[in-house]
Design a protein around this nucleic acid. Structure first.
Length: 581
RNA sequence: CCUCUCGUAGUUCAAUGGAUAGAACAGAGGGUUUCUAACCUUCCAAUGUAGGUUCGAUUCCUACCGAGAGGACCA
């Protein structure tokens, strides 16, 4: 359709002896202004100031009307400062309803990324530490981006990268050793993980405030590395397994299934080898720049030599230990080795890591120029609590489990009057709770910080995930009723008026294209809200299933189309749809 | 001091350089013998400051003010 209109404009301009290479065609924000709009008249006038844009627009419209043979285009008119607006016909909309019905749940799928093999790394919680709301954020964004890319035809694998060794583990084990209640091995994964998280907080505090505890923790840290102490080995094995299994429970609830798990301890030696192989290697002899060099006993990379915006970072410390940068180096190489055909490696993290990831990426692209264009770092803002900063020391950290549990139970509270059995309520409350949290993360563009209020994310009204699910559930119950009354969907028995929902539904595929090209789920979230609102108005303004109404089967067809788009759209956000709520 | 991100209704967020800046929450009012009121509907209300580029700027550029993050041995 878009191309047809563009060609029409081109032909009209040709007849007016005007040539223009790029015709800008867009959807007007206000649905009253038609389905498509172009600003060519204004662009042409801006280039040669001879006439005024409105006059030229009138001429274009007259010419386009004369040339137009397409019955899908009903009206062409001039509006505003010189826009040419195209209004599509009733038939166009009923045909697009039919198309959605034919595609069903595959609506919006495309093949633009069919050749792409993409690995996306996200979530990255560390064993022995709590799964906090930042992880929830990374998970929501990463999972959604993964699904959007899949919907565009890409082959996507999901990866998780976790810090299985380091000081944080020693702190947690110290906490466990000091308090018997943390050693209790009965109970659920979640309980173990929460206990270990508390033990970690205890150890962290001791490390900062108590000199002898600090020494003890450093000692434990060494023993973890060299595995010399049986008791510590035992606690390590148990704690590692317990937290990793608790994470798996969470992933199931959140709807993520990882294919690859990379551990820091495994990446360290790979990274160290890369650094040593490239130590003092001169890259371009006239400027004698090198990658890694020794400075003050440490091995560093002076990235500012290559890009003034970058800075120096340590890769191997004075003590000879690899830093995170070195492990990241190893990780990247390992990822490309794991899948040699991969043409894009995406990492999703908080924006505080943006600068040093650039430094690491610079180092990698000097060593492996072939990787340079295949790495993408997606960053998101921090989640900040509305009532003050989060701090693990102050103990006001909101863990992912806690937030999920609170949200789910407050949603279950809302279902009190429903006469479903408890298991059913639990199942639906979980789906809705996840939606509430994920939507509150995905509704805004991922660049900036999110001020997070527990109350608001739990909100199920207005601009929220549950609102979307609720409109789906209502549509679903309309369809149930239609089945009972034996009204079958028929996209051909349409009424004269065009509903607002229809004017939005056909745009779904375009929204996905944009979300995919910008790696931005929020376009989908915002679109779904508009569609849901339009459907709810539609729903409120009439009775859809009505034996006396000859157009009822069209309205049922439209309701089907709405459910398909809503289900597919929510899937792209990583949200499930409840058949009732 | 330097680099990056960001300043939009009271609050939380939208707006590929375009039309009357769009929602939600909060506030004021209206709606249920009809398919789920977790809904619909009406009203109130905003682009940090000063310049510049442009036919046209919330969007691009410069300066300032303000918030956050990062800036060598933690990640």
């Amino acid at each position: 359709m878009q191309d047809k209109i563009k060609n029409l404009i081109k032909d009209a301009l040709k007849n007016l002896n005007i040539e223009i290479s790029n015709i800008n065609l867009e959807h007007p924000e206000d649905l009253k202004n038609g389905e498509y709009s172009t600003n060519v008249a204004m662009v042409v006038v801006a280039k040669n100031v001879k006439s005024n844009p409105k006059e030229l627009a009138e001429k274009i419209v007259a010419e386009a009307l004369r040339l137009n043979l397409d019955k899908n285009i009903e009206k062409i008119e001039v509006a505003g400062a010189g826009f040419v607006n195209f209004h599509l016909s009733r038939k166009f909309f009923s045909r697009s309803t039919e198309e959605i019905l034919n595609k069903g749940e595959n609506v919006g799928k495309n093949n633009t990324l069919a050749e792409e093999k993409i690995m996306i790394e996200y979530t990255d919680p560390n064993p022995f530490k709590p799964f906090h709301i930042g992880h929830l954020m990374t998970n929501a964004i990463g999972e959604s981006v993964a699904r959007i890319l899949e919907h565009s035809g890409a082959t996507v694998s999901r990866a998780n990268y976790q810090g299985d060794i380091g000081l944080h583990v020693a702190k947690a084990i110290y906490g466990i050793l000091k308090d018997k209640k943390f050693q209790d091995k009965s109970g659920s994964h979640t309980l173990h993980a929460m206990n270990i998280g508390m033990a970690y907080a205890r150890g962290g505090e001791a490390y900062e405030n108590n000199e002898s505890a600090k020494k003890e923790i450093d000692e434990i840290n060494k023993k973890i590395y060299d595995k010399s102490n049986k008791k510590i080995n035992g606690i390590y094995d148990w704690g590692f397994k317990a937290t990793m299994e608790a994470f798996e429970d969470l992933y199931r609830v959140l709807g993520t299934k990882f294919e690859f798990y990379f551990l820091e301890s495994q990446m360290a030696p790979i990274g160290e080898r890369i650094v040593k192989d490239n130590l003092d290697k001169i890259i371009d002899s006239p400027r004698s720049r090198r990658i890694f060099e020794e400075s003050d006993g440490a091995i560093i990379f002076k990235a500012e030599k290559y890009n003034a915006k970058l800075h120096t970072r340590v890769f191997i410390t004075k003590k000879g230990l690899p830093t995170y940068e070195t492990k990241e180096l190893g990780l990247t190489e390992e990822k490309f080795k794991t899948d040699p055909n991969m043409n894009l490696s995406i990492v999703v993290t908080g924006s505080e890591q943006a600068d040093y990831m650039k430094v690491v990426a610079k180092a990698i692209s000097i060593i492996h120029p072939e990787y340079e264009k295949k790495m993408l770092h997606i960053t998101h803002g921090m989640m900040k609590l509305a009532g003050g900063k989060m701090s693990s020391r102050k103990g006001n950290v909101v863990t992912g489990e806690l937030l999920l549990r609170d949200t789910i139970s407050s949603i279950k509270e809302k279902m009190r009057e429903r006469d479903w059995d408890e298991a059913e309520k639990d199942r639906i409350a979980e789906i809705v709770g996840v939606a509430a949290i994920k939507y509150s993360i995905l509704r805004s563009s991922s660049g900036s910080d999110i001020v997070y209020s527990v109350e608001e994310s739990i909100s199920t009204e207005g601009d929220s995930g549950p609102y979307l699910q609720y409109s789906y559930a209502r549509a679903n119950s309309v369809l149930e009723k239609a089945k009972e009354k034996n009204i079958l969907p028929d996209p051909h028995t349409f009424p004269p008026e065009i509903f607002e929902v229809e004017k939005l539904l056909y745009r779904f595929p375009e929204i996905i294209l944009r979300a995919a090209s910008e790696y931005e789920p929020h376009y989908i979230a915002n679109y779904l809200i508009e569609v849901a609102h339009a459907f709810n108005s539609f729903y409120a303004s009439m009775v859809i299933v009505d034996k006396k109404d000859t157009t009822s089967s069209y309205k049922v067809a439209l309701t089907y189309a709405f459910t398909f788009v809503m289900k597919a759209g929510l899937h792209l956000l990583g949200i499930k749809v409840p058949e009732k709520m």
